[in-house]
Write a protein that binds this DNA or RNA. Structure first.
Length: 295
DNA sequence: TCGAAACAAGTTAATCCGCT
DNA sequence: AGCGGATTAACTTGTTTCGA
């Protein structure tokens, strides 16, 4: 008998099925792996633990579940106790603009609601956050998203933010249309690296419009894009945050007819009361930001 | 100690199968 | 027939074991 197999059986029995278990196990694991491990457990015991469809535990399955449930059911309690009882730790992943502009207000409110809260912030991109969530290195991420998140990761969209070009203050470009009408765009394009949704969504739309313009300089953050534009390196791609001014020495040209970038909260497995509070606060801030956007 | 082989456990994609 | 859940097949990756 293998403890990992027992753990998987616990989730299968608790959630009445292998697929439901795959959706609720707090680390990433797919249905076939659970199925195979539970079959291994049944083989090693020489008994059938549950009927697949419709789901029902056999007598042996009920006995085993009754035996292991007190242990696996209380793992989270002992985990919290060993970590020091009342300290509530929240590890958040978010790109720098979100960290700069929105997280301070959110964390202040959260701190009032949950005084024992301590938190850590990490920056990155969607794929990095997904890996960190799966490795349980962060608890929640707020990030621009493009494409479906990895299996097991829950996703709730918060807000859609329009794309914008950032140009030098005294640049001759007033409208994006001026660029699209050119035979060839010679201005270097500055943006964050390609897996970042801001860039991916922009390039996909350019491709759809059959406009050829490729990144000349990939920078680690949207802040750096603004900074390099101000220094005259070219035209930058950024997002139109309604309550955030353009970086010094630059101005923004909104890309009103381009798709917007969806920003979402990502977390792993079942939501807990703390994450519920965080999501509620995030939705409230997203609502306020949306109301500032020009219609 | 190091490298090859074996093994365990995971993935995706395809397939099976029971239910509506 | 179509849908959704379970299983199978083929593969990858990481760890362990074992012999030189």
């Amino acid at each position: 008998m293998n403890v990992h197999h027992l753990e998987l059986f616990y989730y299968v029995a608790k959630h009445h099925g292998i697929s439901a278990a795959a959706r609720h196990i707090p680390y990433g694991i797919q249905q076939p792996a659970i199925s195979a491990q539970v079959i291994n457990l049944e083989d090693s015991l020489g008994v059938t633990l549950f009927h697949r469809r419709p789901f029902s535990l056999t007598q042996a399955g009920r006995e085993l579940f009754a035996f292991i449930e007190p242990f696996f059911g209380k793992l989270s309690d002992i985990d919290a106790r060993l970590r020091g009882g009342r300290v509530v730790r929240l590890r958040i992943g978010a790109p720098e603009p979100i960290q700069h502009n929105y997280l301070p207000a959110m964390l202040q409110t959260l701190k009032k609601r949950v005084p024992e809260l301590s938190f850590s912030l990490t920056s990155g991109l969607q794929d990095v956050f997904e890996q960190q969530l799966l490795a349980q290195e962060i608890d929640i991420a707020f990030t621009g998203i493009h494409g479906k998140p990895a299996p097991g990761i829950q996703c709730q969209e918060m807000i859609r933010i329009p794309l914008a070009l950032v140009v030098r203050e005294r640049s001759g470009f007033k409208k994006a249309q001026q660029l699209w009408e050119m035979d060839r765009i010679d201005e270097p394009l500055l943006c964050v690296p390609v897996p970042e949704p801001v860039t991916t969504i922009f390039l996909t739309e350019l491709q759809r419009r059959k406009i050829e313009w490729y990144p000349s300089l990939e920078l680690a953050s949207l802040d750096l894009v603004g900074r390099y534009v101000a220094e005259g390196f070219g035209i930058g791609l950024t997002i139109m945050q309604p309550d955030v001014p353009a970086p010094a020495g630059t101005r923004l040209i909104p890309l009103t007819d381009f798709p917007e970038v969806p920003y979402a909260a990502l977390w792993l497995g079942k939501i807990n009361p703390l994450l519920e509070t965080v999501l509620r606060e995030a939705r409230s801030i997203a609502g306020k930001v949306s109301s500032l956007s020009p219609a």
